[in-house]
């Protein structure tokens, strides 16, 4: 099943992914595959293990058991546990992106917008100031931040602008896989709508795969091709987004869908 592109090989595969916090379950026995260019939404209520899953997939947390494999640009599937830390860091700032719910965590608040966008470029060895700056300007334009704000630091930005800046900072290296943790959380609905529109057009331009964690079913419906519903750390239902949301099979999913106000 691969709705977004003709490529058959998955980009990221998780098998039996489990994380325990002592005896408490963070997430248990999660299986998933993400294909190039597709958007996978992970939904569920607070405490259902969505964020734990995202931390595991992005190697921020080590799994208690299970394995995650990633297909590099060379087409070879490799176990992420076998990556050295240097390789893992390179992956995180070139082929991957991570957009956090709270932009203060994903941005350097004391560094100008241009510096924030340019950081990844400099981290991979770009040393031409003019080029870095023009690329940063280009990306600020793509996320609808005026070019004359390039030297302002994000503390002077509104919540929506900060989130857009964080997206630009992550997408500047044209990542193949982007993790998003509630990217529209805490924003008012009109700003949310524009941000979702932006995310959708940017990732389709780049052809990036996205794993997006959200508790908002409307966000999932708007953005994602496939959806996974989590509860108590386990995946209870997954499938095509419209199929799951319009015809939920599991009683909990039915409850979740029914509790959305005019979705």
């Amino acid at each position: 099943m691969n709705p977004a592109s003709g490529q058959d090989a998955p980009l990221l595969v998780a098998q039996g992914l489990t994380r325990l916090y002592g005896t408490r379950i963070g997430c248990a026995d999660v299986e998933l595959e993400v294909y190039p260019g597709e958007i996978l939404a992970v939904v569920g209520e607070s405490g259902s293990g969505k964020s734990t899953l995202l931390s595991l997939l992005s190697t921020e947390l080590a799994p208690s058991s299970g394995r995650i494999s990633y297909r590099g640009t060379d087409g070879v599937m490799r176990d992420l546990a076998a990556f050295t830390e240097a390789e893992r860091r390179l992956l995180l700032r070139t082929q991957w992106g991570f957009v956090r719910q709270n932009p203060e965590q994903g941005l350097r608040m004391a560094v100008s917008a241009g510096g924030n966008v340019g950081e990844r470029l400099m981290a991979v060895g770009r040393r031409h100031y003019g080029d870095i700056r023009s690329e940063a300007t280009d990306w600020l334009g793509r996320v609808e931040i005026a070019a004359d704000r390039i030297d302002d630091d994000p503390r002077s930005f509104s919540g929506g602008m900060r989130q857009r800046l964080q997206i630009a900072r992550n997408l500047v290296t044209r990542p193949r896989l982007v993790f998003m943790d509630e990217p529209t959380g805490g924003l008012d609905v009109s700003v949310q709508a524009r941000l979702l529109d932006l995310i959708r057009s940017l990732v389709s331009d780049l052809g990036a795969a996205v794993i997006i964690v959200t508790h908002d079913l409307a966000v999932a419906r708007l953005l994602s091709h496939r959806i996974m519903v989590m509860r108590h750390g386990s995946v209870i239902e997954h499938g095509l987004t419209d199929q799951v949301l319009d015809d939920p099979a599991h009683p909990y999913t039915q409850l979740l869908v029914a509790s959305v106000l005019a979705a």
């Binding site: 830390e85 241009g114 950081e119 981290a123 100031y129």
Partner: peptide
């Protein structure tokens, strides 16, 4: 220490970038 260990010095250039932009 980790940044030194991995020769991960992109941050140093962020500082110089900020200098030039200001």
């Amino acid at each position: 220490r980790r940044l030194h260990g991995l020769a991960d010095y992109g941050l140093m250039h962020v500082k110089l970038y900020e200098d030039i932009s200001r």
